[in-house]
Design a protein around this nucleic acid. Structure first.
Lengths: 203, 203
DNA sequence: ACGCTTCCCTAACAAGTGTTTGGTAGGTTA
DNA sequence: TAACCTACCAAACACTTGTTAGGGAAGCGT
C-alpha cells in the first residue's frame, strides 16, 4: 500500500508559498522553537493538523524556508561573482545585493541569523554549512584580491575584517523593515561609505 | 503558613553563581527555549527538580543572568561616560569596554542578542528596554558630539551610524571565544581602526 | 545525642508539544 | 450520477515540558 500522495513534491505551490511566508514571519518574530504549529495555523486561519496536508513536519517548513532563501541569495551572488569586477566593485556589488536580499527575505534572513548556528549540527541542514563555506570563500577572496591590488588596507587581520563586513551587513536584518525611509540601495550606499572610508573626518 | 524560605535572596551565592554560569552557557549554546531544565541539570551534575532549590523558575535564571551582565556593563560604561573624554576618546573607550564585557560575559551577551527582542515584550524583562534606551542615548550623544566637534563625518545618517557601530561591536559575541589569539583590547583596536578609518586604502 | 540547615533525589503533576488518523464539504472530471 | 481530488476539520496520540511535594543524607552547632 503506497503512502498517500501529499502535494509537497509535485502540486501547485501557490498555497504552500503563502503558508511558508506566514510561517517564516512567525518563526522570525517568535523564534523557531518558541513557535508552535498551532500558532502558525492560527496566523494562517486554519487548525494545526491541517498544516500536515501541505508539509510533513514543522522542521521541513523551516528547511524549505531557508533553502528558498539561500537559492535566491546565491543566484544573486553568483551573478556578481561571475561578472569579474575589480575587488572594490565586487565588494560594493555584494553588499548591495545583500541588502536587496534582506529586503526581499527579511524573515528568512532573521531566522537564518538566529537558528543557523544550532541547525548546522543536524545533517538535515548540512546545506547551511556548505553555504557558509562558499560565503566565506567569496568574501575572503574578494578582500584578499583587494589587498593584493592595494585598494584595501594590508595592515588588518583578514579574517577579522571578513567577520566585520559580514556581520555589519547581515545584522541589519534584525532592525530593517521593508518600506522604511531608506531603500536597500540607499542603506547599502551609506554602509559602504562607512566600511570603506570610516566614520572619522579625513584630514 | 509562610512559604518555605529559599536561599535565592539571602544565602551564600557561591553555588548559585556556578549554576547560573552553566545555565548561561547552555542557554547561549542551544537557545533559551530549546534549553530544558533537565539539560541544565545534566550539565550541573544534578536532577531537574534540584534546580528549584536554588531558583524558583527557569525564567528567573534567565533574568538573573541578564541582570548581572547589564549591571556590570553599566558599571563599566558609566565609568567611561563620567570621565568626560572628548568624543573620539569616548567612542574608543566604549568600544574597548564593550569587548571587555564580551570577553567576561560572552554567554550572557549571546543570550541577550538572541532573546532580548522577544523578552522586552514581557514586563518582567522591562529592565532590558530601559537599558536599551540608556544605551542608545549614550552612543548617539557621543556620535553627535563628535559630529559637532568635526571629528566624525556629518554626511551620514546618525541613527544608521549608531546601529552600524553598535551591531559591529556586539555581534562579535557570536564568534568570539575567550582565550583566542586576540585579546579583547587587540580586537577593539582593529575594530576601531576599521570603523574610524575604513578598510579602503587612503590616497 | 539532638535539632537544624543545606543540598539534593525520587516521583509525580498538568499543560503543552508535534503529529496522525479518519472524516467531510465542495469542486472537477468522466 | 459516480468517482475522485483538494483542502481542511475534529479528535485524539505519545511525548516532553516546567514545576512541585515529600523525603533523606551529610554536616554543624549545642
Amino acid at each position: 500500500m503506497p503512502t498517500k500522495k501529499k502535494p509537497q513534491v509535485t502540486a501547485a505551490p501557490a498555497r504552500r508559498r503563502e503558508l511558508l511566508d506566514t510561517a517564516a514571519e512567525v518563526f522570525a518574530e517568535q523564534g523557531y522553537n518558541a513557535t508552535t504549529v498551532r500558532k502558525i495555523a492560527d496566523h494562517a486561519g486554519m487548525l494545526a493538523g491541517s498544516l500536515y496536508y501541505h508539509f510533513d513536519s514543522k522542521e521541513s517548513m523551516l528547511e524549505e524556508i531557508l533553502r528558498t532563501f539561500l537559492d535566491e541569495l546565491w543566484a544573486g551572488y553568483d551573478t556578481v561573482l561571475d561578472a569579474e569586477l575589480d575587488p572594490r566593485e565586487t565588494l560594493e556589488a555584494l553588499v548591495t545585493e545583500s541588502f536587496r536580499e534582506i529586503d526581499r527575505h527579511r524573515a528568512a534572513v532573521a531566522i537564518y541569523q538566529k537558528e543557523s548556528k544550532q541547525l548546522v549540527a543536524q545533517e538535515r541542514f548540512g546545506f547551511l554549512a556548505e553555504s557558509q563555506r562558499r560565503f566565506e570563500k567569496a568574501w575572503l577572496s574578494t578582500l584578499e584580491r583587494g589587498v593584493a591590488a592595494r585598494v584595501f588596507r594590508a595592515d588588518l587581520d583578514m579574517r577579522l575584517t571578513y567577520r566585520f563586513v559580514r556581520d555589519t551587513v547581515w545584522v541589519a536584518a534584525s532592525w530593517y523593515r521593508p518600506g522604511g525611509q531608506h531603500s536597500p540601495e540607499e542603506i547599502a550606499r551609506q554602509y559602504l561609505s562607512m566600511v570603506l572610508d570610516g566614520i572619522a573626518v579625513r584630514e
